[in-house]
């Protein structure tokens, strides 16, 4: 459905700080895939997601969606088919606007915006219904400013907002990393529920190998800007955290020992 072909991206090109962030990345994302993306810091996971979302244009390579070349599409135009949740819980909603105003903004993702009322009273019941799914009591706080919410509440709201208009593809970049373990588990559970209900094609970056192995049908490991491991289905089911770590340290050229399990 979405294909990245030979994508290369360098930042600070030509300066001493030049980084090869993506090095000939090839990825074929199929309809209904739930792909967990893992890899060490600086491996290029966020850059890959940003590249799909249109945050920058690649130096080389092409991105196609259902056969159409979208490499040159700006970010706001790609938003029509992309739902996003960022690592920073503050990133996904506007603090000075209320919960219902934020939801109304998300409700028009990829649609024209005109001079009719932003928050329509006929939509409130649906907003409440959506919010009640996450069980945080937000359905009774439609008129509260989002800035008043906790990180976990905001991230759950962003999760709902990203999927109000069904996205062709959902991009999650360590979206539970800034939350405490209990809240993170809740948001992860919400994620799984939403992805299942809408049968969403999803890319989820995580540093938690357990999550990566447990969730989704497919797993990719990135290293130094390239995809080094791409497993799915039964092959993925057979993988253990230990197998992943072994691959990981082989990549880094380090000896794998089970002591390193302690670091997980």
């Amino acid at each position: 459905m979405l294909t990245l072909k030979n994508i290369t991206k360098r930042f600070h090109k030509g300066s001493v700080n030049e980084v090869l962030a993506l090095n000939d990345v090839n990825l074929d994302i199929r309809q209904g895939d739930f792909i967990a993306v893992i890899g060490s810091n600086g491996a290029g996971k966020s850059t890959t997601l940003n590249c799909i979302a249109g945050g920058f244009f690649p130096d080389q390579g092409s991105i196609t969606l259902d056969g159409a070349d979208i490499t040159a599409w700006p970010e706001y135009k790609r938003a029509r088919f992309i739902g996003r949740v960022f690592q920073d819980p503050l990133m996904g909603s506007a603090a000075s606007l209320t919960i219902e105003e934020n939801m109304a903004l998300a409700d028009r993702r990829g649609k024209p915006r005109g001079l009719s009322l932003g928050v329509k009273s006929k939509d409130r019941a649906r907003y409440r219904e959506l919010l009640s799914q996450i069980g945080l009591g937000l359905e009774d706080r439609l008129k509260d400013k989002v800035g008043l919410l906790s990180g976990g509440q905001r991230q759950s709201l962003t999760m709902i907002m990203a999927t109000m208009v069904r996205p062709e593809i959902l991009l999650l970049d360590e979206h539970t990393a800034a939350l405490d373990p209990k809240t993170a588990a809740q948001v992860l559970e919400l994620t799984q529920r939403i992805v299942d209900t809408h049968k969403l094609t999803t890319l989820m970056v995580t540093h938690n190998m357990n999550h990566a192995l447990r969730q989704g049908n497919r797993l990719i490991m990135m290293h130094q800007g390239s995809v080094f491991l791409d497993i799915e289905g039964e092959q993925k089911e057979r993988f253990s955290v230990e197998d992943l770590l072994e691959r990981f340290y082989t990549l880094k050229g380090e000896e794998f020992s089970s002591d390193k399990m302690l670091l997980v």
Partner: peptide, 13 residues
């Protein structure tokens, strides 16, 4: 308020 968020929601800031 949040240009990144509204861009991700399809608005040309």
């Amino acid at each position: 308020d949040n240009p990144r968020m509204i861009t991700a929601l399809g608005v040309n800031t």
